[in-house]
Write a protein that binds this DNA or RNA. Structure first.
Lengths: 244, 244
DNA sequence: AATTTCATGTAATTCGTTACATGATTCC
DNA sequence: GGAATCATGTAACGAATTACATGAAATT
């Protein structure tokens, strides 16, 4: 899991551990991100497996502070020391071909993809590296899981209503609303995905139901249906509100 | 964490492990619930600590199948065997005074309450056992955390927008919307809490700002404000759609 | 000069899972 | 009588955390 995230980030850009941790916290992991105690060992494992390696010199050419004039061998010696270490003791990592391969494997592995929120989010963040088929599958499995869970929760709430206190009720109701919105969101993503699907030369043989929303599946009424306008992903930029 | 959930459930009703697992899955834990591999050891620990104990006979009087006529000592022997085991080999657990005390301690311990979703949800589910003060604190700390996280994420999204692909953008935007709705939900709960607060005889000395929503705190515009109608918790019952 | 931030790592511990092993009871 | 479900438990393992330990570079 962590490995997948690391490899995915290193695919875009060479980074050192500290920076990696920041990116991880910003983009994927919901709370706080990972700790150094798991990040560095993970990097070591990946390095041992030949999936990543330390880049000589690092991303930014770190301008080794040459102290004026010192000739020949001494200069070479001075320069050799921080070779694997960047300006500040940093170890900048890059992904290797083996790493790319490992990334593909980890990304494709759908073990517990739909039932684990973190795993799903992570894979969605790298969905551009998946073929259309797999991408759709990822979204639809997640949707199916949420739908099933919603059904179970609704059932449980209805059965235990009397037993539950106001706080638990509110918690469960809010949870269900969130799940409903998640499903609608997935519907939009799925619609967008189908819209840009590669037109199969096979003809209309492989039409797999016209996607968006079968109200029957909800096994319950009173849902804010919202049949997902086939607006291909989101294109809105956030308002540039801040300074500079 | 698990201990707290177990104790809380046993406070309401005596239960055996298997049933406990079901309740746990229904009410608290978002995905699938806990496994037996963690539940039973937890029960053992609690029993060893004197926080729970096996109930003689179990909750439902399990009608030991008396096989017609068998007199005196033999009947006593037959009856003695399942004494600690309920009809089916069940071990029905009940909470002890020590357990009640432990429950209070675990519930009050606010270590990582606001930053851990599971911990927060669990405590909210047992919020009725907290004094008003602590309940408000729980809600407000969670709210503050979400607000801060929202700020961080917004900032990160704005900074890295160019670098992010459509899927990651959608993921982050949806995540932010969810967080905004969570905050609004908390606002409603907090408002409800204040509405039913015990009127302090101290006078208007301890008025701690009129609660609901300071748009300034959002440090950003374009938020669907929704200033939370002071409707005391939720009173709507779900449509009784099913049978019986 | 002192403090903060950057940067990397190790060791012990926590919390949970999966897989395995067992057996009773109910339903068909 | 055989399968499904109920019911309890153990052992091996996994993934991550916290706490500890260290030190260089930038900032004040």
């Amino acid at each position: 899991m962590l490995e997948l995230a690391i490899l995915g980030l290193l695919k875009q850009q060479e980074l050192h551990g500290y920076e990696l941790k920041k990116r991880l916290a910003e983009t994927f992991v919901s709370g706080g991100g990972v700790s150094f105690g798991s990040l560095y060992p993970a990097l070591s494992r990946l390095e041992a497996a030949g999936a990543v390696r330390v880049i000589e010199g690092g991303g930014e050419p770190d301008a080794i502070p040459m102290t004026g004039a010192l000739t020949g061998e001494l200069a070479a010696f001075r320069a050799r020391k921080p070779v694997t270490r960047g300006s500040r003791g940093k170890k900048v990592y890059g992904i290797t071909p083996r790493g790319e391969q490992l990334f593909e494997e980890l990304l494709a592995a759908d073990s517990g993809t739909s039932d684990d929120e973190r795993a799903f989010n992570l894979r969605l963040a790298f969905a551009r590296f998946l073929p259309h088929e797999a991408r759709l599958g990822l979204l639809e499995r997640r949707r199916a899981y949420l739908l099933e869970r919603l059904g179970r929760t609704r059932h449980a709430v209805r059965n235990g209503w009397e037993r539950l206190d106001a706080y638990t009720r509110s918690l469960l109701e809010h949870g269900n609303e969130t799940t409903e919105r998640d499903i609608s969101w997935l519907d939009r993503l799925i619609a967008g995905e189908r819209a840009q699907a590669p037109a199969r030369p096979e003809g209309p043989a492989a039409v797999v139901s016209t996607t968006t929303f079968h109200p029957d599946q909800w096994m319950d009424s009173d849902i804010p249906t919202m049949p997902a306008p086939p607006e291909v992903l989101s294109a809105r930029r956030p308002q540039q509100g801040g300074k500079t």
